[in-house]
Design a protein around this nucleic acid. Structure first.
Lengths: 145, 145
DNA sequence: CGTAGGGCTTCCCATGATGGGAAGGTCAAG
DNA sequence: CTTGACCTTCCCATCATGGGAAGCCCTACG
């Protein structure tokens, strides 16, 4: 199986296959007499594993670990779960961050006419920093943050 | 004002200030006799603008546009709003993507004992691809997706 | 006044995952 | 035997950021 065929079969681009080989994520492929890489079904399965891992947002480094856990069927599921859970935490943290950005911007955009006038709370916020959000009445009671 | 002082005053690292200058995001700073960059209050304000924009997830390119809109007070808010809204769409799309990843992984992780046994649905999913979700009963009625 | 330490300058390199493209070898079909 | 599609390696670019080296400058202290 050529690299192109392996690419089509796995959904991983030929460029990426070479890259994964180069960084040691996959074993160096066999070579034909003419120096073409030659892939087995098993190689393609590994590539599919990698592809799926990437689509779940795992870094190549995490996939390296997951792949070695997968190959060694005696390893405890604890290790796999730890990697996955750490990744989920990471995802959720980044989601929260981006959600906050989106919410802030949405609020600012709603206050922006979006017409010919130049007045725009978005620019004001960028220039002057975040305006304190509508103060909650409870806060007057001296609860120090 | 030295670059270090400007960095402290704006929250943008000296490295980044030089970079922003290099790519033309900010005007080249004045220089002292000894070739040190010299920043004004106005420069620092620009840096704060940039900093705030980055913290809202705008790319440097988007900030370039926002900054020029900010400097030209005659421009219509429509343009600003368009940039912001496009960015919000982008954020929301990426959030949805990551949310889907996190949800999938959470479900898989819940099915994983995380103990000494090697059996683990996470690895199975990675190796074999996504399992069809628990089929909803309504779906038996032939509603084609 | 001399020197030490900290700040500044530029320049190069690295990150992570991906793609683009050039130059050249190979293979299969016509 | 030629043509076109494929393969090989190598280099470059992305985006925003940091690390670090080599060398100049400035200030404060003895």
């Amino acid at each position: 199986m050529n690299i192109g065929q392996a690419a089509r079969a796995s959904g991983v681009s030929a460029k990426m296959i070479r890259y994964y080989e180069q960084i040691g994520l996959i074993r160096p492929a066999e070579r034909t007499d003419s120096n073409y890489r030659s892939f087995s079904e098993r190689d393609v399965n590994d590539l599919r594993f990698i592809k799926r891992g990437r689509s779940l947002g795992f870094s190549v480094e995490e996939i390296t670990n997951l792949l070695s856990l997968w190959r060694d069927h005696t390893r405890p599921s604890r290790e796999v779960k730890a990697i996955a859970d750490a990744h989920v935490s990471d995802l959720r943290a980044r989601i929260a961050e981006m959600q906050a950005m989106a919410d802030t911007l949405t609020a600012l955009s709603e206050g922006c006419a979006g017409d010919d006038r130049s007045d725009c709370p978005i620019l004001i916020d960028l220039a002057e920093g975040p305006k304190p959000r509508a103060a909650r009445i409870e806060d007057h009671n001296g609860a120090t943050s």
